[in-house]
């Protein structure tokens, strides 16, 4: 539990939190104006994003400097561990909301819409569906005509992507073993492979989206199937992107000689995060693509 308090590092006053809050404010305000097609929206978003990105870089830079400077003791390390673990838990709950929506429409709302002939006569309440007024669902992975959409099949790109992400989970663990044995070459190779696999995953995902929009008639507007498909896979893809950025930072730090076999929370936090996006993908593969 709690050990020597005297050495717990308490940071000096910091300008980063208030400045990044300004950035968030511009980002949010810009987003509202942009979606309502009002003048300065995109510019405000740009300014907000720039501020947020800059402060994240400075803030993390300072933390990395403090960590490498050796002023964090074991207790500070534990605070970071608890912090990251519970942050990932909150992310899990964010995805849970969208999975909950998917299960609810599949189990309840779609069957209920099909139950009565009075409201939507002739509606076939079978999944996948874009609802009574949406485009008709046809066989997966076939070119869709007007007012049709084709759901995404599981055994093409999504299956390959599953293999890619699972392999990347293995490579990041292999990199961790390298770090634990002070084998820097293994650490750097493992990280490099993980990042490469992550980028291939994202590239395939982008290809899949283009395919969906141009040939399958599968868009965000394709009823509740399109909505759940793109929101779930889209937020996942966003998290993979964040993970790749985080891994790249860790790779850069490894190249600079950061981390020791007994002091590398930054690496572990990113590895946890990477396993988290991996697990979310498995659920996506099963419930969005496959079943």
């Amino acid at each position: 539990m709690s050990t020597a308090h005297g050495n717990y590092y308490l940071p000096n006053p910091s300008p980063w939190p208030i400045i990044i809050s300004f950035g968030l404010f511009f980002l949010a305000l810009g987003a509202v104006l942009t979606i309502n097609s009002l003048g300065a929206g995109p510019w405000l978003m740009l300014v907000g994003t720039a501020i947020v990105a800059y402060i994240i870089a400075r803030w993390f830079g300072q933390v990395i400097g403090e960590s490498e400077g050796g002023i964090y003791n074991k207790q500070v390390d534990r605070s970071f561990r608890w912090g990251m673990a519970w942050f990932i838990f909150s992310e899990v709950m964010f995805f849970a909301a969208f999975f909950g929506a998917l299960f609810y429409v599949r189990q309840f709302s779609v069957p209920w819409i099909g139950e009565t002939e009075l409201l939507w006569p002739g509606f076939d309440a079978a999944w996948p569906t874009a609802g009574p007024k949406g485009p008709m669902a046809i066989t997966p992975d076939t070119v869709a005509g007007a007012n049709q959409f084709s759901p995404m099949g599981a055994w093409g790109i999504p299956a390959i992507n599953t293999l890619i992400l699972l392999s990347s989970g293995a490579t990041v663990t292999w990199a961790h073993w390298g770090l634990l044995k002070d084998n820097r070459a293994q650490l750097i190779t493992g990280l490099f492979l993980t990042i490469a696999l992550g980028i291939i995953f994202l590239a395939l995902q982008i290809y899949e989206y283009i395919h969906a929009y141009t040939e399958l008639g599968l868009t965000l507007k394709a009823g509740v199937y399109g909505a759940t498909f793109f929101m779930l896979t889209g937020f996942h893809g966003f998290h993979v992107t964040l993970g790749v950025i985080m891994l790249t930072v860790i790779l850069g730090r490894s190249l600079k000689g950061h981390f020791r076999s007994d002091h590398h929370f930054g690496f572990e936090a990113v590895a946890w995060y990477w396993h988290f996006v991996d697990v979310v993908w498995l659920f996506l593969f099963i419930f969005v693509y496959w079943l």
Binding site: S109, G131, K133, Y225
Partner: peptide
Amino acid sequence: TSFFDAAGGGD
């Protein structure tokens, strides 16, 4: 999107 729109299969 149609999360909350029955016409698109939502609720």
